[in-house]
């Protein structure tokens, strides 16, 4: 069994300060991920130092704008562009902003909607 994990809820306004603090404490950025729960979107920021995780979570609506932490962690742009493209949540101030072209998907913001795909035949005959 692995150690249990703690996730600390924070507000949108705290995101950048928490990231700055994490970097000051010598953490690396592990990932930023999004989960849709009903109409809410949970965004999870994960930092790691010496295999110890620090997790922060914000809960937002799709219309909310969230600040980018790419100014603190340069590499955050991949996750933030991903969240924008797959969930349609606007992230402000990304250092390398693909403006929705990071992922080219058949359906816009696929993770923010329920998709019903018709069961089509296997072959095009």
């Amino acid at each position: 069994m692995m150690e249990p994990q703690q996730i600390t809820p924070i507000s949108i306004g705290e995101v950048v300060t928490k990231a700055e603090q994490a970097k000051k404490d010598g953490n690396r950025l592990v990932q930023i991920g999004c989960t849709k729960i009903g109409d809410d979107f949970e965004i999870l920021y994960v930092f790691d130092k010496d295999y110890k995780l620090t997790n922060y979570r914000i809960t937002v609506k799709q219309a909310d704008e969230i600040p980018s932490i790419s100014g603190v962690y340069f590499g955050a742009f991949v996750y933030e562009n991903e969240i924008h493209d797959l969930y349609g949540i606007h992230v402000t101030g990304i250092n390398i902003d693909f403006k929705g072209t990071f992922y080219k998907t058949a359906i816009k913001h696929p993770f923010s909607v329920t998709i019903v795909k018709e069961d089509d035949s296997c072959q095009n005959k």
């Binding site: 998907t105 058949a106 359906i107 696929p110 998709i115 795909k117 296997c122 072959q123 095009n124």
Partner: peptide, 19 residues
């Protein structure tokens, strides 16, 4: 490539190459 396989139901997969 033949039919889409386990990923056939994925939103971004259009199906086998013969489409």
């Amino acid at each position: 490539a033949c039919s889409g396989g386990v990923f056939r139901e994925c939103y971004n997969v259009a199906g086998g190459i013969d489409k």
